[in-house]
Computed example of a mutant assay.
Amino acid sequence: MSLLDDPFDHTETKDGTILIRRGGRLVVTVAGRRAQELAARLGRADDAGRQQLLARATGNYRRGNERGAQG
């Protein structure tokens, strides 16, 4: 399943915390300095870039070393 099929969504709260959701469920909460840096990068990124940044913030992204199903 790709990021286009099931994209991440995010909300920034008044205190600067970023809530990242996928499929309507809260995946991770980013706070503090990390949230400030992420918010700045999200502001400069296009849609595809935002999805990559959110995926990386959650740890849910492919690193290129996974093997396909062997069957």
Rank of each mutant, 00 (worst) to 15 (best):
M1W: 11
M1G: 15
M1H: 13
S2W: 05
L4F: 08
D5S: 15
P7L: 05
F8G: 04
F8S: 04
D9Y: 02
D9V: 04
H10G: 00
H10A: 00
T11F: 09
T13Y: 09
T13P: 03
D15I: 03
G16D: 00
T17Q: 10
T17S: 12
T17L: 05
I18A: 05
R22V: 09
G23C: 01
G23R: 06
R25F: 14
R25D: 13
L26T: 03
V27Q: 13
V28W: 05
V30S: 02
V30N: 01
A31K: 15
A31Y: 06
A31M: 07
R33G: 03
R34Y: 09
R34A: 14
R34C: 01
R34F: 00
Q36E: 14
L38R: 11
A39Y: 08
A39G: 07
A39R: 15
A40K: 15
A40E: 14
A40C: 06
R41I: 04
L42M: 11
L42D: 12
G43S: 11
R44D: 13
R44L: 11
D46P: 15
D47N: 08
A48L: 10
A48Y: 00
R50M: 06
Q52I: 00
Q52D: 04
L54S: 05
L54G: 00
A55K: 03
R56L: 07
R56A: 10
R56V: 03
A57P: 13
T58R: 08
Y61L: 02
Y61E: 04
R62S: 02
R63V: 11
G64Y: 07
G64A: 08
G64F: 10
N65I: 02
E66H: 12
E66L: 15
R67L: 06
G68W: 09
G68V: 05
Q70P: 12
G71H: 14
G71I: 05
